[in-house]
Design a protein around this nucleic acid. Sequence first.
DNA 1: TCCCCCACTTAGAATGGGGAGT
DNA 2: ACTCCCCATTCTAAGTGGGGGA
Length: 573
Amino acid sequence: YSSPQHNKTSRRELLLIRWEEERSTDGSKWRFLEHKGPVFAPPYEPLPDKVKFYYDGKLMKLAAPAEEVATFFAKMLDHEYTTKDVFRKNFFKDWRKEMTSEEKSKITDLNKCNFAGMNEYFKAQSEARKQMSKEEKQDNERILQEYGFCIMDNHKERIGNFRIEPPGLFRGRGDHPKMGMLKRRIRPEDIIINCSKDSKHPKPPPGTKWKEVRHDNKVTWLASWTENIQGSIKYIMLNPSSRIKGEKDWQKYETARRLKKCVDRIRNQYREDWKSKEMRIRQRAVALYFIDKLALRAGNEKEEGETADTVGCCSLRVEHINLYPKLDDQEYVVEFDFLGKDSIRYYNRIPVEKRVFKNLQLFLENKQPGDDLFDRLNTSILNKHLQELMDGLTAKVFRTYNASITLQQQLKELSSDDSVPAKILSYNRANRAVAILCNHQRAPPKTFEKSMQNLQTKIDEKQKQLSAARKQLKAAKAEHKASHDDKSKKAVEVKRKAVQRIEEQLMKLQVQATDREENKQIALGTSKLNYLDPRISVAWCKKFGIPIEKIYNKTQREKFAWAIDMAEKDFEF
DNA sequence: TCCCCCACTTAGAATGGGGAGT
DNA sequence: ACTCCCCATTCTAAGTGGGGGA
């Protein structure tokens, strides 16, 4: 950052030009890739004998394999998961697979297992670890330096997840049929390494082998393995600050900006299609309208019974919507109520155009609650159609586009003469509007009520202070009225200032309380990280002289380095 | 056309570490 | 120095969407 602005900019522009040129060739993602391979979970250490496990009230010593799996459960005792039937059932089934035949014949009922001793032991352990955190920190740092980076095309790049996931109990979100199942330990023999032929290949731990070493530069991952719960592949990939991720991110926003140029045409088109003679075209047009207007996800089909029952737009079922020809003072209201990604509930009531409403009534005819709303549509059909409307257009581009354009519009409406803290508050409001659009929710933090109470206490105290200060001011005024001397005049001024200061402090606390309350169930991070073109925020900061640190923390600045360099104050999404 | 596989982005929860307040 | 709380970071699950083969 020591170089002059114009140099920095042109360097970055050149880099982007280079990115673009390199991209357009043969689909290869890199020319050289060298890394040290992943870091494995530490081997299991059997519990000391003082840690007791009881079955049916009787002390029992488990052999290492069953003991290890028992510790996974014991560590989660305080978690709600361990009270759920499905979790317990899946856990117990998988746990029994790890038992010796003797253990298996004795342990037949999970309810008779007492893990309390183990649980206490691990709590004590994590306390102890906190005490000696210095050494551990150094250790982590050493591992990070050794395994946390790779060389890709002449650049040292940070790896995102260089540690292999440790074994444990699967924690699915929502009503997941597989929750509690044993996630098995990953060994070197499970790992496929990807690197360049002419690089120094990573060595497997002594006495082990990799499953495979390949040299595929059409993909970006450094290592992969197949996970045993869903049978899906997991990858080790680079950090968001890397060239390969940044470039992709930039492309994503460029595609969304291209959508901006033709979105009017597309909107007119789907409105026309609401009138089509063909059912499949009407369904496609209504679904696209929802994706555009409500920022719904595409909604791929899912394998029944393998995952939680969640839906997106194309997979909506009859039971997920209600139609109200009239509701309160509005006409043609559609009520949505379904579980989306991560089993987050989407609930919304929106008035739609009459034509959409009539179409929905048509789609619902002769259907059961469990039937598909759009029975002639799926994401593949929709995306093929979108591809014809614009090169590179898919359903998810609408989410990116609508999120980013919303932020830009909201920021434009702000008054420019606010103070910096007021501007930042407004920025967060705009961010929040996007998070609400995208339905980014979170569980209220466990400490939420308490921290709100603390804040309220502060506010109450401040209010008391204020009324005391006001009384003093009043007294000082009376004093001055009586004496009319300079000293009392000064005293009035002093008291007036104090009142003003306390008023400001109170205001600040109240704003903070409002902000926190409004954020109770809303997660801002996801939209900031994945949907809002960072150049909008960077341009806004530059235009109003707001330090970028007020908007993006260190990690975010690293991820968005390309945008921070590239965007000038007049950038338009 | 359908299905399955693969690679990648997007997601909320859990964890950890450091700073503010006492 | 200590505690508590908050935010950054880490973790890994859960989506999207393309491609290939039956």
